[in-house]
Design a protein around this nucleic acid. Structure first.
Ligand SMILES: [Mn+2]
Ligand SMILES: [Mn+2]
Ligand SMILES: [Mn+2]
Ligand SMILES: [Mn+2]
Lengths: 217, 217
DNA sequence: TAAAATTTTTAGGTTAGTCTAAAAATTATT
DNA sequence: AATAATTTTTAGACTAACCTAAAAATTTTA
């Protein structure tokens, strides 16, 4: 149906659309895929012929309903595999992404359905990102950045915005784990750093960190 | 390291070498990969430059030690994934090959080591084929074709030669399962068909079937 | 061992996916 | 509104992995 490369383009456009709502620019896609704008133009024409995107010269690109469903299915596979790697094969959450980038391209509906069942139908991946259902629908939960909490407020840590292994390992080192309660004891006016408490441990957290951690109030 | 296509060539040459000992011919590779001889010549030159095969024009090709190890590792992955699909995801043994053909190309040493452990270090795949170890070594067991058994002899069913889904489904239908004891009650002179007993059930088996079933005496 | 048949290689072409450099269109700035 | 800066597309080229058709080498057969 779609080549490895076409799937990567679709997934990228899907992710970019989630926080832009407008047509996705050639340059944005190129940057995200670490490729050249001219390559993107070529590919986008091909995807447009395959009816997964709508493309107007110089106006960027949008996914069709079919394209969105196709892309969501790749994301679904990516995230289910990440859960598998962490839950069953003892990978840590900062090691799974690269492997999932490969596994997401395996074509077998039965495989992914059985994997889903084997994992007891998880709703979120190890980074707190939601797993699209079979129809490509995402259940978006109301989550906020830790940086939006005020003094004496608290919430459950439910996800990360940046999931680079550097950031994830940093969280590991600090003992910040998804599912744990985080309470803000102090909010520093000067640099917006926070003094938080997690698992009875006090931690000082920079604004940069607080901007990359999601909590559910 | 190696492309998808290079890996498929390596694996094919590896399989062909297992039952020929001589240089593998261009045509044999082409037939096995359903491609053209001219394409094989091209690829074989490339593999030769990468030092995984020794190639002499018109003389066929042989794997180097490095090539053999590389190929065995792909076979290892293929067979471990087949075990995973059958043991953990409830695939039947006639459904796993196509998916394993894709999964065998996933590159992650950690993944395959963890998978191996997760499956409790299996030694054989669902078709009775041995799983190469990390160094690419195969433990070959002494097995014989069912067709070589004489009247009143018996053995344990340990593998299939043909693992097409048609044949495997035929075995399912007849109740022939790996690990079960098969005893030969009669051997028909005329067409070399066998009257066998498996799990207290009597079955008449053609020579073609008996030539595709391995038993351990 | 010479002719015939077969196998293998070479030559030249195609497609997918990428690239660089230049042209064209759009957007921002004065 | 004209010019400058930026973005996007086009043109032309490259590589990997294929293909067909023809040439060359090997093997078989008579
Ligand atoms: Mn990921
Ligand atoms: Mn993730
Ligand atoms: Mn197989
Ligand atoms: Mn097998």
């Amino acid at each position: 149906m779609f080549t490895h490369s076409e799937e990567n383009y679709l997934k990228t456009i899907y992710h970019l659309e989630l926080d832009s709502k407008k047509g996705i620019s050639t340059n944005a896609i190129a940057k995200s895929l670490a490729t050249k704008a001219s390559s993107v133009t070529d590919m986008v024409k091909k995807l447009s012929e395959k009816e997964v995107v709508v493309y107007k010269k110089y106006k960027g690109v949008t996914l069709t309903a079919f394209g969105k469903k196709t892309a969501a299915n790749i994301v679904r596979k990516h995230r289910l595999w990440e859960v598998f790697l962490v839950e069953k094969l003892n990978f840590s959450w900062d090691e799974v992404h690269e492997v999932a980038e490969q596994l997401e391209h395996i074509k077998s509906p039965k495989l992914i359905n059985q994997l889903d069942a084997f994992l007891s139908f998880p709703t979120h991946d190890p980074h707190g990102d939601p797993i699209p259902d079979k129809d490509g629908n995402l259940k978006t939960i109301e989550k906020s950045l830790l940086s939006t909490l005020q003094k004496n407020e608290s919430g459950i840590c439910v996800g990360v915005d940046d999931s680079s292994s550097e950031f994830l390992q940093f969280l590991d080192k600090k003992g910040i784990v998804l599912g744990k309660k985080i309470a803000v004891l102090e909010k520093e006016e000067f640099d917006d750093s926070l003094l938080i408490v997690i698992e009875d441990k006090k931690l000082s957290i920079s604004n940069k960190i607080a901007n990359n951690l999601y909590i559910k109030k």
